[in-house]
Each structure stands twice: as structure tokens, then as C-alpha cells.
């Protein structure tokens, strides 16, 4: 068993009296593909926000490569290697697609020797990533005018540009057609070759089962199952949560 890349233990987050997360343990190993599922409002996005630093958790510890992330703002966490895509795409709308990728390349991804990239270097690397994502033809377009599927790809491309060790994809496929879903799955499967661990949050079961090596299930802020995809799907509690009794 490889060492864990991300180890969250006992993570709790409440908004007033409402517990969005209650003592959730969640682990990701280096290069692993993990599916995170659960009904709407079960706390998936809250967990992502606590891991990436957009929210701070009330209790529990989150270790990344053995270091405690407590108190680190989001921009420091992505510099350590935790990147995310947003459920509702949040492009830098006034910038070109290429410039969108320049931001993480210039601000999040350290080069060797701890120096920052030059503008040219960032532009070249951004173009490489766009080519891998099939977005290179749109490099000079304003990102505000992209189609839904291209916006999702841009979200993933921008996360990739931070040169992460862990990528959290928050419902990158919601509302896409089945061909488009296959495109996104192919992109996410390709992360493994680059040694990037991926957490995929998704409602589309076909995608989750096909993609994941392991699946964790959140229901009402608690983790009720964690294991191989087929085992988890047969778990009566999971069935109950999704289909009712």
C-alpha cells in the first residue's frame, strides 16, 4: 500500500445548527482515482471546500503529504498541489482561454529551483495543456463566450496548469451529453499517467463506476461507505440512500 497523499480525519463543519459534515474521514493515496458520491446536499462540495481551503473546517485535521493544512489559505494549498475545478465553471471571463491558464502557471506552479515562470514560458506550457485538452483552437477566444463543455474542459485545464498532485473534479460532467461525458472521462483517466491523484465528484453512476478504483459515499454529512465500486454499489445502506426503502 502506498502512503496516503491526503488524509482527512474527523472533519466537521457546521453552519449554525446544521451539520454539513460530521466527523468525516477521507483518504486519497498518491495517483489514486477516487469517486466521491452522495445525494444533493450530502456535503460533498463542503468537504472539497474544506480540503482546498475555501472554507475552514471546525474540527478535524487534514494532512497533505504528511503536513497539516490547518490555517493555510487556499492559494497556499494549491501551491502545495491541491487543485480543484468548480461545479459551476468560474472562468476569468474577460481573459482569453490561454491567459486563464497563465494565472495558475504564474502563481501556483513553482518551477524547479523555486523560481517563477516567465510570461513566455507560461504561455508555451499553457498551450501544451490546451493541446492535450483539445482546446488549442480556442486559445485566443474570450473564455466568457465558451460553450458548456469547453468551460468544463477549461476548468480542468486551469486546474492542471497548477501542476497539482491531487485534482478534485467537482461535477465536471453535470448537464453534458454522453459523448461529452466520455471526453471528460478520457481526460480524467489520462491524469493517472502524469501521476496525479483524482477525486471525482459525480452523480453520473456510469462515469463513477467506470472511472474509480475506490468509491466513498457521503449521506447527510456522514460517510456511510468506502471501498471498491461494485461492493459499495451493493451496500444496502447506499441503496437505501439513493433509492429509498
Amino acid at each position: 500500500m502506498t502512503a496516503s497523499l491526503l488524509a482527512a480525519t474527523g472533519v466537521t463543519k457546521h453552519f449554525g445548527g446544521f451539520y454539513a459534515l460530521e466527523k468525516v474521514d477521507f483518504e486519497v493515496r498518491a495517483g489514486e482515482r477516487v469517486g466521491l458520491i452522495g445525494p444533493n446536499g450530502s456535503g460533498k462540495s463542503t468537504l472539497v471546500n474544506c480540503i482546498t481551503g475555501t472554507l475552514s473546517s471546525d474540527e478535524g485535521t487534514i494532512l497533505f503529504e504528511g503536513h497539516d493544512l490547518a490555517g493555510l489559505p487556499a492559494h497556499r494549498r494549491i501551491r502545495r498541489g491541491i487543485a480543484r475545478s468548480f461545479q459551476l465553471p468560474r472562468p476569468f471571463a474577460a481573459m482569453s482561454v490561454l491567459d486563464n491558464l497563465r494565472i495558475p502557471l504564474l502563481y501556483a506552479a513553482h518551477t524547479h529551483g523555486g523560481k517563477w515562470r516567465s510570461e513566455e514560458q507560461a504561455g508555451d506550457e499553457a498551450m501544451d495543456i490546451l493541446r492535450q485538452m483539445g482546446l488549442d483552437a480556442k486559445a485566443d477566444e474570450k473564455s466568457g463566450g465558451l460553450t458548456q463543455v469547453d468551460l468544463r474542459k477549461l476548468e480542468l485545464a486551469r486546474a492542471m496548469a497548477a501542476r497539482p498532485k491531487l485534482l478534485i473534479s467537482d461535477e465536471a460532467m453535470a448537464g453534458l451529453s454522453s459523448n461529452e461525458i466520455d471526453e471528460i472521462i478520457t481526460i480524467l483517466l489520462g491524469m493517472k499517467e502524469r501521476g496525479i491523484a483524482v477525486v471525482m465528484i459525480e452523480h453520473i453512476m456510469r462515469a463513477v463506476v467506470h472511472f474509480s478504483e475506490r468509491v466513498a459515499v457521503l449521506v447527510a454529512g456522514r460517510k456511510i461507505a468506502d471501498g471498491k465500486p461494485d461492493e459499495v454499489m451493493r451496500n444496502p445502506e447506499v441503496e437505501k440512500a439513493y433509492l429509498g426503502e
Binding site: A74, M95, D99, R158
Partner: peptide, 22 residues
Amino acid sequence: RLGRGLAAIRDDEVAAECSGVP
């Protein structure tokens, strides 16, 4: 580089922070 960061803040502050912009 500062200007690029400021432009990112102008467009979307949350996304900027999550892209490494302090």
C-alpha cells in the same frame, strides 16, 4: 505578473485564490 493577478481578482476572486493568487 502582479497585473495578471489583479485581473484574475477582477474577474473572479474565489477562482483567483484557488489558482494560487494571494
